[in-house]
Write a protein that binds this DNA or RNA. Structure first.
Lengths: 235, 235, 235, 235
DNA sequence: AATGAATGAGCATTCATTCAT
DNA sequence: TATGAATGAATGCTCATTCAT
């Protein structure tokens, strides 16, 4: 991102502070609902001055996204390349991801909510980074399957479960609450690793019973929007 | 035969179609970024005529939310009250939730993304409904713990894992794709029920090894934003 | 005002009722702030049906104006032409004017407030009628001066005083209140006839004292917007 | 030298000019019928720039009202508290009121016509100020009655006559015309003070004759809307 | 005689951005 | 560096009016 030439020493510092504030405002009110005026007020700078530091509102979004995505991806790559078994690497990657969610909750809100406000090029970059991250996870999961640690999972579906579990955390987590990133990581991985594990200790009949239920109770369809049929009175 | 005052027979039909279109636009571009003009264009109606059918933009949001939340909650309550074991009920509730996500994906997008655009009263109602749904899940999980089917879980955290796994699905699911709601429900429940299950077959040492890693490799902190310390060369 | 041909017997009745309602709404909220929708609701007719009876919103204004102005002018002419002394005729005309103010208070509100919403032609007609009425008053006042009943007044200024006193009544009068038109007319005429009367019983020195005050107290200018000068401390 | 944040030196000047123009437009066309676009055009500023100076359209109304009401009330209070006889104070107050009508004719138009466009709080304030002013007049008139300068008048009705006579002036006065505020005040007070005066020089029989007329001429009712009865031909 | 539906212009207001100073 | 001032397009919404039925 080329900056106009000839900036004083404080320029970058202030610029970063402005992005901080923008992230917090965007997280609170949403990107579209936050005006440049709001930002100026929160920063204590007139609108005109603001534009000395920022190039556009959309650019703030880009910077916020990459603040989160760049270090995460870089650390994730390091972890994935460690010479450790896949389970440990997954566990470390999980904690890494949760750590940044805890530390940059507002950035994550913006990242998760407003990435669709980006236009073509930038959106593509971002989606590329997301995809890169997903592939790191996929790779580790596949290794675990290959090594027989996990049962035979569809790798894509296992990845999505891993990501669902972690990524949705931003919706409810309180960084100052009772749980920290390490704890959540331990819990999530306990669930996932047991859940994905090879040993066949599942609760074996629940699927059959579910199938039976669907067959025997047409009056209570699982589709919430389906009509309610009065229960068949058995003979 | 003069019709009673109010609206003609086609009114409600068209109104519902307009809400359909709104849901799809809001899902695509976000609520704040979609203008009433956009909606009019998509519907093929001038702005003025649009307002013959809708009461306000925000009201569209409300209608979309409740289209999703009302049937879901009602069906979820029926399921929770069934005289079946908690595992089966969780499984049915899971499929119910995923079914509505598949059938009303755009509504769910709006529901998940733009609920914060609602003002006081409506937001409160919505959050109340969300909370009601969560309590249904919590109750079933607690039953499973009580009956010794699941190990001793923090009920709140188990609930959040259940919800993370399901709710984040809207982010990537393709209703016309290879998987359907029943399949995803089976997979998610397999993961969760094994993961939450009582039998102690976890992969026991991963936590110790993670702790050791954090101790031995201060050069590779899990926080993606922490400084990279050149690896200590051990002696 | 040509009406479309072929109306049933109830047409004119209903039309008049609609104008009644319009007058009351316009009086309450102002012409510009009252919508045709408001009118439809108040009348119990859909907008479309309304236009079967009215030609336009502005036309309602015209009808309301002439409902008030036509009978008033006609009666005023009859009174002015009576073979009675000017004082009596002024007194009768005063009561006539106040009577219509009492009976048609809402029309008068509209008449006084919103006549400027009329466009060229109609406005001219209205102003012509106003002017006709004023000339009737002027004529009677001039007669009274000629006959020596009133002192030598500038006829225009006397007319304006007569009209000010009467016309502003609509601003505060309550038709169901303690006073009726006859009473107000008696009081107004008592004031005006004494005030205009020939006998020189004025309170003679108030003008001199007013002049003195203005001279001696430059610190308290009568112009409310003039600067306050600290009072000159006398020696 | 960086100026403190807020507004430059020309801001308030321009702001006041905008309110001036608004007052003149509102007076000409009415508040509701004047658009912010009209104002922008008249001021030579794009709509966006206009809002840099004004807070809202309604706020313009408020500013206009208080421009007129604040100085008037303040000056009126000073006059009412003077150590002079009530007649002189009434005369001075009359001139004060007329002076502001002359100087701020457009403001007065707005004040008199569009006060009902104000919403709750502001309307209450305004009505309170109007009432305060009326009480000042009432007090002086009551003093004059108590001192026997005026005959026994109903104080409320006397006040309303005073106000009718003065306040309706804005409807026809031309500030650049032949009359000025001092002249009108002299004339109005001459009428009122004689009219209210104690000496019993009224034209005593006009009321009896009016009563007789009403009795004897049922064919010519004073109500302009009453049916015309063909005159009874007397014997 | 009356309706529901539609229109297009207009409304007050907000916004991201620019620029001379 | 920072400001106040300006712009023009866009926003959600209302309105008087029309018209096929």
């Amino acid at each position: 991102m080329p900056r106009p030439p000839g900036h004083g020493p404080g320029f970058e510092v202030r610029r970063q502070k402005i992005i901080d504030v923008a992230a917090s405002l965007f997280a609170e009110q949403g990107y579209a609902a936050t005006s440049i005026n709001d930002l100026g007020r929160a920063v204590g700078l007139a609108k005109g001055a603001l534009y000395y530091y920022i190039v556009s509102k959309e650019n703030l979004l880009i910077e916020i996204q990459s603040r989160v995505m760049r270090p995460l991806l870089s650390r994730a790559r390091q972890i994935a390349e460690l010479d450790e078994d896949p389970l440990l690497r997954l566990r470390l990657l999980s904690e890494s991801l949760l750590t940044i969610i805890f530390r940059r909750l507002d950035h994550i809100w913006v990242y998760e909510h407003d990435y669709r406000s980006l236009s073509g090029d930038e959106l593509e970059t971002l989606l590329g980074q997301r995809s890169d991250f997903e592939h790191l996870v996929s790779g580790l999961l596949a290794e675990a399957v290959d090594q027989g640690i996990f049962r035979a999972l569809q790798p894509r579906l296992a990845t999505l479960q891993f990501l669902n579990l972690h990524n949705h955390t931003y919706q409810w987590v309180r960084p100052e609450g009772q749980w920290d990133a390490a704890f959540l990581s331990r819990e999530y991985c306990a669930t996932l690793f047991r859940g994905f594990g090879a040993s066949d200790n599942a609760l074996p009949d629940v699927e059959e019973r579910a199938a039976a239920f669907k067959r025997d109770r047409p009056d209570l369809p699982l589709d919430p929007e389906a009509e309610w049929t009065p229960a068949a009175v058995g003979g």
